[in-house]
Structures are given as structure tokens and as C-alpha cells.
Design a protein around this nucleic acid. Sequence first.
DNA 1: GGTTTAGCACCTAGGTGCAAAGGT
DNA 2: ACCTTTGCACCTAGGTGCTAAACC
Lengths: 228, 228
Amino acid sequence: MLIITLYMRMFPAMRVKIVGLDPHQQYYIAMDIVPVDNKRYRYVYHSSKWMVAGNADSPVPPRVYIHPDSLASGDTWMRQVVSFDKLKLTNNELEDQGHIILHSMHKYQPRVHVIRKDFSSELSPTKPVPTGEGVKTFSFPETVFTTVTAYQNQQITRLKIDRNPFAKGFRDSGRNRTGLEAIMETYAFWRPPVRTLTFEDFTNMQKQQGILFLKQRDHMISYTTQDA
Amino acid sequence: MLIITLYMRMFPAMRVKIVGLDPHQQYYIAMDIVPVDNKRYRYVYHSSKWMVAGNADSPVPPRVYIHPDSLASGDTWMRQVVSFDKLKLTNNELEDQGHIILHSMHKYQPRVHVIRKDFSSELSPTKPVPTGEGVKTFSFPETVFTTVTAYQNQQITRLKIDRNPFAKGFRDSGRNRTGLEAIMETYAFWRPPVRTLTFEDFTNMQKQQGILFLKQRDHMISYTTQDA
DNA sequence: GGTTTAGCACCTAGGTGCAAAGGT
DNA sequence: ACCTTTGCACCTAGGTGCTAAACC
């Protein structure tokens, strides 16, 4: 019996813990991202809600992100938390660097696939994941997200800046600080190590709608949603 | 029949072109580095030669660098130049980050192994490469090198600085230059793109003895030799 | 005395939000 | 009016030789 337990950190990446594999069997692990519905959305600021704003753009053929540790044994996969933090996204339909192509302002659901090696002669970034015996697919409703090219909500921005090491330059104590202030920060105050955004962070902000940031720069910055 | 053609760039990395594989068969490609003799060397500056300076330190169990594109089909391997530029070295015998451990001031020979998948149940970074049917090993006498922790020869230093993008700060036009000079360099003079050091570079410097730089920082910086 | 290390400034490479400009 | 792109300053992460100090 195969079980995936969601080790829920949606920022910056989806991470899963996998149990129940055959230790000696070889597996690929892959992710794809599928539309939730055929609607386009817009964010209504005063009500802090995503509203339907017409029909979806015509979908692009879905791409598959094959986890870079593939191919590995069940034993190896189960020994670690499998993180998808290298997955990159784009809204550029001409992209051919292996990024996953999505439309902005749409809702999507990431899926995790566990694929037994002896079944996967056709696994490819540009082909749909095979189905049937030897392939298990998992999706978690709490990971549905909405894509954007600019943050719609300042709470999201603040969480991102606080949690992502690369955004350190925008932290309150990092912006417009003097040399002395930088020294003070280092020695006088203790700051906990940077950690990634967790499911609970979102719960604590009143089930804020999750969004996903999507520029042509193509960096992966994903958030959980709490639509339920 | 399996043939490896050495695509000779020993700086910063050994690169090989492989032909003659079965396109549909799966292969690992790996490198290890073995002692050439049981001597320790020192560089005699006035004669520009490496001289024997006693017996070798006791050898450490050799480690294997498995090329990160492994496992791949013969077709995939033959389609590209296989580069070992991510291989890292150290003189720290306690290292456990998968680096290859060498002694300084010793002579070594890198070897390339092509290993058919159905033969390699025991391939591991810490175990010797298996031998026999399904495993082919190649070594090239011109790639023998001597390890050092500091450059013994200024010609080597200069080549390194000129060719390695990361040493750009030490180039003549990059050191102590003013803002104006930096602009001049960009607009007024044309500099060819940085390229890696080739076999021919060494030939042109009167068969300078190759050395290999080996700090605990563990970066790969290898040079060809021209002892022949 | 020769060899090795540690700290440094200077690079490459690339991930951030911001603000202004561009698109539709 | 709203969405997207571009150029930017500011980060992380890590690869360089140099120098002075430390190690034998």
C-alpha cells in the first residue's frame, strides 16, 4: 500500500513525505499542475476575494516536472522529504527551458506522481504522465492556488519578504538602514533562522486566499490556499 | 566497439566525447583519480621541474565521481560532450561531501569509466568501480597532473586568471582600475569571450608541467601536464 | 624553510520586490 | 482601468587568487 503524507510547506515549494514504497524498486517522482476550472479570476480588493471574471484562456499542453533526484530507489525516496523547490513556472507559452506554463489569473492544482520504473518507458517533460498500474497520482485540495504577476494583497507580500532569504533586502530592518543599524541588527537583536512559509502561517492569517507569483522571469513562488 | 575521444579541455574540467555506445542501452559514466607512483614531489623553481622528494603518503581509499547526468541512455551520452567540471577535490581525509580525496604534492591520473547499467548493481561513490564485462575504463597520459595547495609557477597563475571567469578580479585590466577604465574596457576594447584552458595553451608554454590546485575549499581546478 | 590555512576583496550566477513604463 | 514587463538595487550562494598567519 502506497501512502503519501503531505509535508506541507507550500512556500517556496511543495514538499512531500513518501512511505510505503518497495525499497528495492526504482521510481520516478514527478509533478504537474492542472487547471481547477475553466474560469478566469480577478481579485476584488475591498472584499479580499477572488471573483470569476470570464472564461479561462485556452489551456496549453501540460508539462511535467520530473524530480531531479529521479531515478531513485523506493528506499532513497522514503529516506528524505521530497521537495519541489526547483520547479519553475512561466506564463510565456514559447518557453522551452522545461518550465511549467500557466496562465495568470487562473486557478490550478499541483499533482504529485509516483511512477514505478518498469512502467515508465514514455516519461517525458512534454508528454502527459502515464496512467494505470504502477503509477499513483496524489493531489491535495489545500494546495490549490491562483496565479498572478503582481501581488494582490499586502499580507502575502509581507509573508514573502519575511520568509524568503532572497527578499531579505526588503525587510523592514534591511531597507534604508545605516551601517550602524546593520551592526545593531547583527549583534543586539536575535532573529530566528529564515524558514519557509508553512501551511499554518496561512491559517493564522484568516485563511487568506493563496496566490502564485508568475513573471516571465519564471521563478517559482507558490502559496497554499484556504478556500475550503 | 566502444571509443572515447578525448575532447581535450583540462581546465577547469576534463571533457570527453563518447561514441560507439548502444543508443538504447543505459550507462553510468564515472571518474576516479588514481596515484601515478608512490612518490612525493616538490617543485624546484630555478629549474622549473618537479623533483622526487620522498615516498608518497599512505593512499586514501579512492572515491568515485558519478557523472550527475547518470543514468542515461547511450544516445543521450553520445549527443553531448561529457564534462566533469562539477567534480570537487580535497586534501581533507575527513571530507564526506562526496569530494575526491587526494594528497598534495603527488602525481595522479584521472580515469573515465563507462559502465553498462545491467552490470552496475554495486556502483557507489565510496566503492571501487567494478571491472569486467560491461565496464570500460579510459585514461589519457597527457592528463596526469601534480597536486598543489599554492601555485608554484606564475605562468600557471596567469593562465588561470585569464581563463577562469571567477578570477576576473585579478586580471590586469580588472585590478586597481578606475571607474573610467572599466568603461573604457567595456566600450573601447574588444575582449574575446572567456574560454576554458585547452591542451594547446599548455603546448604553447613550452610543455609547462601541469599542476592541480587543492585547497580545503575543495574547488576543482585541474591542469594538463606535458611530461611526455 | 617550505607548505597549508584562514580571512579577504572581487568576481559569476541567479533569486527577490519595487517602481516606472508598457500593453490591452 | 487593470494587468504585465523591464530595469534596478539588494540579496543568497559560491568560485577565484592574494596576503598574512599558522603549521610543521
